[in-house]
Design a protein around this nucleic acid. Structure first.
Lengths: 353, 353
DNA sequence: GCGTAGATTGAGACCGGTCTCAATGCGTTT
DNA sequence: AAACGCATTGAGACCGGTCTCAATCTACGC
């Protein structure tokens, strides 16, 4: 009798049930597994035997032969970030409805952690992987998944040279529109702030490590450019993680910036706090807008004007695409682009005279 | 040659590597698995063969014999709720450091979903389970895990009759202290609002479905009682999910309540919004306090006075306890109680004259 | 030079399912 | 009554690892 190595207890197996029901292992497996046929009488015998013995299927053994684990991996930057939490929930709901579970890994936006996460997931034989890639420009961490032919779907950002389904927002258009709100209010000295790491000062044509931020910056720069503002690139401030959002914001105030576009909700929050501690009034002295309609943006005073994204849907749609691929769909790669939506509130006003 | 049933591709196995390295399967397994001994020469041959062939271990096959999956399940109410997201991150970090991955399931605070989640996790042979139980009073959904001897650790709430390690906050003391802030400000008509379902109006001695809410209510009632307030139970308002926080808040205002204790951050948020739409000024007209130092509470105007909890630590400590149990620790059951911390801000003032 | 301990290696069972294929049983057709 | 089709059942290989145990090899002591 086999013994569970973990707690020394015995797990009831198909063979045990078969013996108790006086049928072959194959037959017991058929009725317990719900495949193949069996006579009514046998089915009853097996089921009652299973109940009496307390049979519980071993999903791993099943995976061994079928090759399907009914679990999918999801790699996010940080589950504590409400953005990822929401996307994960969207994915979890779709996955659950289709009979899949989620194995969750945080990458902290680190390529090596991401690569390691993928190896782990592959070793656990997940049926597919959902990832918000840490780097758009260096997708080497994703290579293993692609090479080994596991279905892979990217969300929030794309990755160069990785030919898989993706679900992202229309950040280019969204950023243009968000920036335009500021321009329309009369601002000319508008800063864009992002935590993304970049080798040096931003210059037109530079490619950023995250396609979504890249698009946002391009939308921002494009809008300024269209408005006839000279050298818009100088208004782009990156590396805010390294330098600190508060330090950057302080510098911006010194530079007589009159409006700030925060690249995401977390940066928006940090900027909001710093402006408050500096005693800078929003929107009287400085206007502030951000991406993502996070909870706090409508609760804060003033409430923030934001570019809202269907975050839940990022995860849900990505999961749908993935599950289709797992099911064997060989349709051409799909690049889903979801619209953003402007939510105007109270954080924008004309620049001070 | 075995073929991967999922994508028709061939996965390289220990046997393949063994053949290429001209050693037995057992020997190849030993060097690849890092157990047992092998001569330097053989080790080299096997490793180069593995590299050339592109060998990737199958963690499931390993689990089949060892009985350890190196994954732990975590069941939360809703990963989208920042509380659970934070706790999950805490657990994920500790788990990762110990070589475990997390399988995440949402229960939506539903006992049947929780029970199903446990079955799934058990079938996937997780080494242990972390759960914020949906019901303190009806722990039947947890029974299977206990009966089958899988290590189980509860966090945020306990469950009656389930004799396992737990990690919760000192809600009784925290709630008392939080209520006292209101009492000290001169309030006598203070309401406690929770979304928890309850058969009827709250009465002293009633046992609530969540031990943490139960403790908070008892702390609240105790503080009022000590302050000589008659029949404090009448100030406890439950079933806010069913009735709607906004409806309850409106009713409270009609009843000339001068202060509100929100049972968690989400309720605090809903109450805050409703008070604002009603044109009720905080704290001039009504004081508002809540549990959990969520982001928005310090960003809102006025900033909320809250009872802060070490949420991250709930998950982290629970994971630590669980991993100890998985490792075979037979020490007596541990009930960790973490302290809460009062954060006084601007949402409390004396009641209007 | 021989015995023996210790290191190295291989054969094959095992984990708990699924799956293929052949054997058996039974009702129907001719 | 022989032949046939279909439903039901069982034997045993297989998935990809681990693990036990025995066989072989090596070096050392006397």
């Amino acid at each position: 009798m086999p013994v569970d190595p973990l707690n020394g207890r015995r797990e009831v197996t198909v063979s045990d049930v078969a013996a108790a029901a006086k049928v072959s292992k194959a037959t017991a497996a058929r009725v317990l597994g719900g495949y193949g046929a069996a006579s009514e009488a046998v089915r009853d015998r097996v089921h009652t035997a299973a109940d009496e013995l307390g049979y519980h299927p071993n999903a791993l053994a099943k995976t061994m032969t079928t090759g399907r684990s009914n679990s999918i991996g999801i790699i996010v930057g940080d589950i504590e970030n409400p953005f990822f939490a929401q996307a994960t929930r969207g994915a979890a709901d779709v996955a659950k409805a289709a009979g899949y579970d989620l194995i969750l890994l945080n990458s902290d936006e680190q390529a090596d952690a991401e690569q390691n996460a993928i190896s782990v997931l592959l070793a656990k034989r997940v049926d597919g992987i959902l990832v918000a890639p840490a780097s758009t420009t260096d997708p080497s961490s994703l290579r293993e998944a692609v090479e080994r032919g596991r279905p892979l779907v990217l969300f929030d950002r794309v990755a160069d040279g990785v030919d898989v389904d993706t679900v992202v927002a229309d950040n280019l258009a969204g950023s243009r529109q968000l920036t335009q709100v500021l321009l329309d209010a009369g601002h000319r000295r508008i800063a864009f702030v992002s935590t993304i790491a970049h080798v040096s000062g931003y210059r037109i044509g530079d490619r950023l490590g995250s396609s979504s931020v890249d698009d946002r910056v391009r939308g921002f720069v494009g809008a300024l450019d269209d408005a006839g503002i000279h050298d818009p690139a100088r208004f782009v401030h990156l590396n805010a993680r390294r330098d600190g959002v508060h330090a950057i914001v302080r510098r911006l105030i010194d530079d007589d910036i009159t409006a700030i576009v925060a690249s995401d909700s977390l940066i928006g929050q940090a900027a909001f706090r710093e402006l408050r501690t500096l005693g800078v009034r929003i929107p009287t002295d400085v206007s502030l807008v951000a991406f993502d309609d996070a909870d706090w943006t409508s609760l804060a005073a003033p409430a923030l004007t934001v570019m809202s994204q269907p975050i839940h849907e990022f995860g849900a749609e990505a999961a749908r695409l993935l599950i289709r691929r797992i099911a064997g769909d060989r349709a051409p790669i799909e690049h889903v682009v979801l619209a953003q939506r402007l939510v105007e509130r109270e954080s924008v006003a004309p620049p001070p005279a």
